[in-house]
């Protein structure tokens, strides 16, 4: 389990990195924390000729916010988000999610952008960003593209990121003090990828009511009907709608899997319910 030979470069800025990726003959691949790509290299499932290490590019390590939204750079690690090294405008949602990713050793190196770009449907950030209604920011030599997180995944392990593009940042709505969220994942053991993820976010002040079932076979599933009931009639009534909505949308999925998604989403709603009761 040793990788096939490859070159390694560490560009100083985004321009240099994009130029390296734009060379079609280079068979170059972006490398950040290496927590997914590393094992794939060792298993020889990925065989790039060149790794472009973007960890040291200053532009990708910025957090900024205005009154409505905020940006987080792609190469912040899960641990930095967990520890509050990166400022948080999500009312604690991102640090909570970060804390549940894999193990601390993985979180110390793995990055939020890297996790998204890897495009594993079971990954936490993919569901979280889609649930909160984030936008993924991509840069190529031609300029910037912005993709709603919900549409970011094209399928399992394939995303909107082109071979000459870099995922540079994530733009999120800034949650108000009234925001409530519930995040629940079904895992057999600590650190394992989730079998099912349920996310509920409500922020009446900015009119945000969203419910999501994640760790499906592809894009996470937005539960619009349930979210509407959440907005109008609260979490307990929304919870009653979840099974029907998931069953209808994922009728091709095996019932046991659907069951786990239903449970995860209901438990994320239950969290809101408990918060409201408290």
């Amino acid at each position: 389990m040793k990788p096939a030979p490859f070159d390694y470069v560490r560009p100083r800025d985004l321009q240099e990195a994009l130029a390296l990726l734009a060379d079609e003959n280079a068979n170059a691949k972006v490398f950040a924390g290496g927590q997914s790509l590393g094992p794939m290299l060792n298993l020889r499932l990925a065989r790039p000729s060149k790794l472009v290490d973007i960890r040291h590019i200053p532009d990708l390590r910025v957090v900024r916010a205005d009154s409505r939204s905020w940006w987080i750079g792609a190469t912040f690690t899960h641990a930095e988000i967990e520890d509050g090294v990166a400022d948080d405008f999500s009312c604690g949602l991102l640090p909570f999610v970060a804390r549940g990713i894999a193990y601390r050793a993985v979180r110390n190196r793995g990055t939020v952008g890297g996790s998204l770009a890897h495009a594993d449907p079971a990954a936490d950030w993919l569901s979280t960003m889609a649930a909160v209604g984030a936008t993924i920011v991509l840069r190529g030599q031609a300029g910037e593209r912005r993709v709603p997180a919900q549409q970011f995944l094209l399928g399992a392990f394939t995303s909107e990121v082109g071979s000459a593009e870099i995922l540079t940042a994530i733009e999120l709505p800034r949650l108000s003090a009234m925001a409530r969220w519930g995040y629940y994942k079904v895992c057999r053991k600590t650190g394992e990828f989730a079998k099912a993820i349920g996310v509920t976010i409500q922020d009446p002040q900015i009119g945000l009511f969203r419910i999501l079932a994640g760790s499906t076979e592809g894009r996470p599933l937005m539960l619009a009907r349930s979210a509407e009931i959440l907005a109008n009639r609260g979490p307990d009534r929304a919870a009653r709608e979840v099974r029907d909505e998931i069953d209808a949308a994922l009728s091709h999925v095996e019932p046991g899997r659907r069951q786990q998604l239903v449970v995860a989403v209901r438990r994320s709603l239950q969290k809101i319910s408990l918060l409201e009761a408290a």
Binding site: M1, K2, A4, P5, R44
Partner: peptide, 11 residues
Amino acid sequence: ANRARAEDICD
């Protein structure tokens, strides 16, 4: 000379 090269040969 090392494991990585030996795996290259396996390939």
